[in-house]
Every structure is written in C-alpha cells, then in structure tokens.
Amino acid sequence: MLIHLPSQVRKIVDSFLKHVVDPGFVYDTEYLTHTFFDRVRPSARSKVVEAAAKFAVLTLGDTAIKIKPEAFADRMAKCLRSFAERDADLVKKAVVRSGYGCKG
C-alpha cells in the first residue's frame, strides 16, 4: 500500500532540478535517494536519472539555472553516484544515452 501517491513525472524532475540548483544545496545521499529515487514511480525515476546524466556531462543548458554550469554538473555527478548505489544499470544506461558514456 502506498503511503504517498506518486507525483507526476514532470513535477518530480522539476523538484529534483530545483533542489540541486538551490544555492543552499547540501549533498545528502540518503535524502536524494529517498526523495527522488525510492519514493517515485519507475518512469519518474528513469527521467530523474536521465536529467542528472545529461546535466552532469553538460549536454543540457537551462537559462533558469543561476549557478555555474560546471558546479551544476558536479552536483549532478554526485547525484548520479547516489542513484548508482540503488541501480547501477539504470545509471549506466542514462549516461550512455547522454552521449558520453562508454558502451560496454
């Protein structure tokens, strides 16, 4: 039985991006994985991981992001490491799809 209804995919991805870009961002693997990985539907989980992979390798730009792209990419790379602890295969596939991962 679900305690909380799963949020829509877009809402989860937007919330994740806002959290990571926040000037007060503190890397907390438990919070990240609990909030944006464990408690969301598999489709939303995949989209969060894909967004993290694309931003981690600087393949996406967004004018709403008010921190340096390199700093944002570093934060996203940390998030990917946290997500990989839960599902390494999902993260590997997202990195490959981002265009910078090795296929193998």
Score class of each variant (00 low, 15 high):
residue 97 R to M: 06
residue 54 K to N: 09
residue 8 Q to Y: 02
residue 62 D to V: 05
residue 4 H to E: 09
residue 98 S to E: 04
residue 13 V to L: 10
residue 48 V to A: 04
residue 13 V to W: 07
residue 58 L to N: 07
residue 26 V to K: 11
residue 24 G to E: 03
residue 5 L to A: 10
residue 88 A to M: 10
residue 94 A to P: 14
residue 22 D to K: 03
residue 77 A to C: 08
residue 82 S to W: 01
residue 6 P to R: 10
residue 80 L to R: 06
residue 28 D to H: 09
residue 91 V to F: 02
residue 65 I to P: 03
residue 44 A to P: 09
residue 84 A to T: 01
residue 97 R to A: 14
residue 66 K to Q: 15
residue 91 V to R: 07
residue 24 G to H: 03
residue 9 V to N: 12
residue 51 A to W: 01
residue 80 L to M: 06
residue 84 A to Q: 01
residue 95 V to R: 06
residue 90 L to Y: 00
residue 70 E to N: 09
residue 19 H to Y: 12
residue 33 T to Q: 11
residue 31 Y to K: 12
residue 99 G to A: 01
residue 21 V to R: 15
residue 49 V to M: 05
residue 56 A to S: 14
residue 13 V to C: 11
residue 66 K to N: 13
residue 56 A to W: 01
residue 18 K to Y: 02
residue 91 V to D: 04
residue 11 K to S: 15
residue 82 S to Q: 07
residue 99 G to K: 03
residue 76 M to Q: 07
residue 85 E to N: 12
residue 88 A to D: 07
residue 50 E to H: 06
residue 11 K to F: 04
residue 57 V to R: 06
residue 17 L to H: 06
residue 46 S to R: 15
residue 65 I to Q: 05
residue 16 F to I: 04
residue 17 L to T: 07
residue 89 D to L: 10
residue 63 T to Y: 02
residue 102 C to S: 12
residue 70 E to W: 00
residue 50 E to A: 12
residue 57 V to I: 06
residue 87 D to L: 09
residue 48 V to F: 01
residue 76 M to R: 08
residue 38 D to R: 15
residue 39 R to M: 10
residue 25 F to Q: 01
residue 70 E to Q: 14
residue 12 I to A: 09
residue 14 D to C: 11
residue 84 A to Y: 00
residue 72 F to T: 02
residue 34 H to V: 07
residue 19 H to S: 11
residue 40 V to E: 10
residue 91 V to I: 01
residue 79 C to D: 01
residue 43 S to Q: 13
residue 85 E to S: 14
residue 4 H to W: 04
residue 25 F to I: 02
residue 19 H to T: 14
residue 25 F to H: 05
residue 68 K to A: 13
residue 82 S to T: 04
residue 45 R to H: 05
residue 50 E to K: 13
